[in-house]
Amino acid sequence: MKHAEQLYYRLGATLYMPAIMPDLAQRLTTTQAGSVVLCTEDAISEHQIESALKNIDKLLMSFPQIRTNLFIRARSPQVLSNLLSLETIGQIKGFVIPKIDHSNVYEYKEAIEDSGKDKFYLMPTIETEVAFDNQELIRLRKIIDTFSVGIPCFRIGGNDLLNLLNIKRPDYVTIYETPVRIAIDNCITAFRPFGYQLSAPVFEYIDDENLPLLKKELMLDRAYGFHNKTAIHPIQVPLIQEILSFKNDEIDLAKKIILHQDKAVFKEAGQMCEPSTHINWAKKVLSIDGRK
């Protein structure tokens, strides 16, 4: 779990790319995103799956020198099995599992165990009805506890959850001003107290004029404790990585909390610091300081 959490803080903005794109190598060598997901699910059609797998294999056979953490979003347990059978698959960091719930979790587990390859990381995505039922999320978490692979984070599929509610988010509200906020709250309480991290949902508007709203949403992501967010366009990457990274003043404050942890309370930078309730946050900040 520890190594998986360290990877979480290196993910930064996770940029999704359709796996059928012909220039994947060039895009991977030039991206500034902390992580990239090659998508074989919603970003492509059913009839394009075979072409996407061939494109991925071709990319990995001449794997370029890249700085980003590379994942593949497997469309189904069968596609995951097909990917795991590629001789070149060891080049990637891991897989994103879409729409995970009780209907498919054991199939994904079986695909991993049958492959005999457990060095990969998995990022399961919560984007079905289970997100609106806290008890079912807890039951799902207990199953995933038995997986042999590292879990850097659970991803929250905001648009799929909106789709379940027959809603399309308008371009003047953040995700926290929609009913999906309930699902976000459920995921936080079901997973984070038990050692799992979470990724903030995508912001689907990509024009320059929408960047102020993205910034507002990112500030709320930070308030909710997220340090990774899905990106669907390179224009979003710098802002996501700037706002969701820890700042120098936060690192300095964390050091002071550790230094004064024997005190009940002290004042610093105009705020009350109570080490007994802030110590976990401080340890987290310092454990990842210098991670880049």
Rank of each mutant, 00 (worst) to 15 (best):
Q6G: 06
L7E: 11
A13G: 09
L15A: 02
Y16E: 04
M21I: 10
P22N: 11
A33N: 12
V37E: 01
C39Q: 05
T40Q: 04
E41I: 02
Q48A: 13
I56H: 09
I56E: 07
D57N: 15
M61E: 15
F63N: 01
P64D: 08
R67G: 14
T68S: 12
L70A: 05
L70G: 06
L70I: 04
V79L: 06
L80I: 00
L84Q: 13
T88M: 06
V105I: 14
Y106N: 09
K109T: 12
S115V: 01
G116L: 08
G116I: 05
K117D: 14
M123I: 15
M123S: 11
I126F: 11
E127G: 04
T128P: 05
Q135R: 08
R139F: 07
I143V: 15
D145F: 08
D145Q: 02
I151G: 01
I156H: 13
G157K: 06
G158A: 06
R169Q: 15
P170D: 09
R181L: 09
I184S: 05
D185A: 06
N186C: 02
C187S: 07
T189S: 14
T189P: 00
S199T: 13
A200N: 09
E204H: 11
D207R: 12
N210W: 10
P212K: 02
K215F: 03
K215P: 01
L218Y: 02
M219E: 15
M219Y: 10
G225A: 00
N228K: 11
I235W: 11
Q236Y: 06
Q241K: 03
E242T: 15
S245L: 12
N248R: 12
E250W: 08
E250Q: 14
I257R: 03
Q261W: 02
K263D: 04
V265Y: 14
E268A: 00
E268R: 07
A269G: 09
Q271E: 10
Q271G: 06
C273K: 14
E274L: 08
P275K: 04
I279E: 01
I279D: 00
W281H: 07
V285Y: 00
V285H: 03
L286Q: 05
L286G: 07
S287V: 11
I288N: 05
